[in-house]
């Protein structure tokens, strides 16, 4: 039996096909967000991995910002619950999840079964989100996916404000004109994200073990500095960006067996 989870985020769409609620059969990511062809593309892409048909899916559960508009969904859940279940699938020992998505930061506490216990999210501000990193990468003229490696080569950190993306953008531009090293600048950007996210995580309470989900978890520079800020190790799975979609597929399976 196959269940399909789709996470239609603000900047990327992710999909996971789960077999019998226990084994990941296929995964796909498309770097296009809600309101684009991303949702349809990721569906085709994940089905093509093992040459499946949509009819093979017993149940489809959709999450993320585009969860209300996907026509083929059997049900939808908030990305909070989906990330909680997805990370629990990957790391059952985790009790605190930090998810940095395209426009949201979430700090979640979960129980042993992966049920959400409490959460806090960022206010209506892009500082510290994936969008913040996108903007910074564009100004520095590097690929956002390369930021992590670049930041790890820093010899010192340039101080960057974490209160506002627009202010930080002009700050980065002024640092660039002062000819600071790109690596040091990137590390400063990562530090500003880490501090912002850490304050949110502290507000919700941090219970070990801690894991990160969402696309920004792939940025090793941010993860390392966030570990410093919260003074704990952070688990990052290679499928961290897929945690929401994976959780959606798990929840779809559970809905069939209720």
């Amino acid at each position: 039996m196959f269940t399909l989870g789709i996470d239609i985020g603000s900047t990327a769409c992710k999909a996971v096909i789960l077999q019998d609620g226990a084994r990941v059969e296929a995964r796909a990511v498309v770097p296009l967000g809600t309101g684009t062809s991303g949702a349809g593309d990721v569906l085709q892409k994940v089905l093509a991995v093992k040459n499946r048909q949509i009819e093979d899916m017993e149940r489809i559960l959709v999450t993320g910002y585009g969860r209300f508009t996907f026509a083929g969904a059997d049900s939808q859940k908030s990305e909070l619950s989906c990330h909680a279940r997805g990370v629990n699938f990957l790391f059952p020992s985790v009790r605190t999840i930090i998810d940095i998505g395209g426009q949201d930061i979430k700090a979640m506490r979960v129980n042993a079964k992966g049920f959400l216990e409490n959460f806090v999210m960022n206010d209506k501000c892009a500082a510290g989100t994936g969008k913040f990193l996108d903007v910074m990468a564009r100004i520095i003229n590097v690929k956002v996916n390369d930021l992590g490696e670049i930041g790890l080569k820093a010899t010192e950190e340039v101080n960057i404000s974490n209160t506002c993306t627009v202010f930080a953008e002009s700050e980065v531009i002024s640092k660039l004109s002062a000819a600071v090293r790109i690596e040091d600048l990137v590390a400063g950007i990562h530090r500003s994200v880490a501090k912002r996210v850490a304050s949110l995580a502290f507000r919700n309470g941090i219970v070990p073990e801690v894991a990160m989900s969402g696309g920004v978890a792939l940025n090793k520079g941010v993860v390392a500095l966030l570990e410093e800020e919260i003074k704990r190790n952070i688990l990052v799975h290679e499928d961290c960006q897929l945690a929401g979609a994976l959780g959606a597929a798990v929840l779809a399976y559970e809905e069939l067996h209720k």
Binding site: Y65, S78, E79, L80, S81, D104, F119, M121, K124
Partner: peptide, 18 residues
Amino acid sequence: SEAQFETRLQGLVEIMQH
């Protein structure tokens, strides 16, 4: 933000439901 309100309410509902 309407989307933000709904996501947070839904998250709260999912905890209360569980």
